[in-house]
Design a protein around this nucleic acid. Sequence first.
DNA 1: CCGCATCCTATCGGATACTG
DNA 2: CAGTATCCGATAGGATGCGG
Lengths: 110, 110
Amino acid sequence: MSVVRDLQLDTACPDTRALVEHVTSKWGVLVLLALEEGTQRWSELKRSIDGVSEKMLIQTLQTLEADQLVRRDALPVVPPHVEYSLTDGGREAAALLGPLMHWAQLRAQG
Amino acid sequence: MSVVRDLQLDTACPDTRALVEHVTSKWGVLVLLALEEGTQRWSELKRSIDGVSEKMLIQTLQTLEADQLVRRDALPVVPPHVEYSLTDGGREAAALLGPLMHWAQLRAQG
DNA sequence: CCGCATCCTATCGGATACTG
DNA sequence: CAGTATCCGATAGGATGCGG
């Protein structure tokens, strides 16, 4: 009945935990909210998200893609042209993360 | 204007990031949602939150207390009797985390 | 009952250099 | 442009044991 009851399941359910950790990770939340505004290329994302290393950007994108929150479209041209966008699930996640980030920002910076 | 603009500030603002990491941490989210139902003693929390070690429970509580999301009340009796409850800020956090956990759970377990 | 101290491991995440 | 590969330090988090 209670929220806690559900959460005890969580502790026993690594999948739920993993998903939460992915979307709330340092770069995961930034990627999701950046893509919430629309499709972006890899290099655009790298510029949008200040301070992200190539390693972490790729890694984060691959994780979120595996979670089916982000879609990757690679156009077979030279030079490579790869676009990233949110799936429906990704939009759901972003919609939940936005308020959380907003709250944290208000609280941390006054 | 955009959400992303705000988030770029985030990257440069460790305080916001830290707060998000605290409330979305493995045990932080469980503590906040457990306390959302009302005041609990330390030993009750330990039993409520399945699998938490003493070290992590204490550490999580101290972090959230420092963030002013959790209040600690120690009654000067023997044996010690310590109660934990949410502050207004803690209730705000819990209200944002509930939907996120619910979403993750539905998505992870179907 | 409540909490601290210590040790240990795995993972996170940054820096750097290299490829098609 | 869009990655891959490798090394490295810092930290999260578990196990165990002690103390008031």
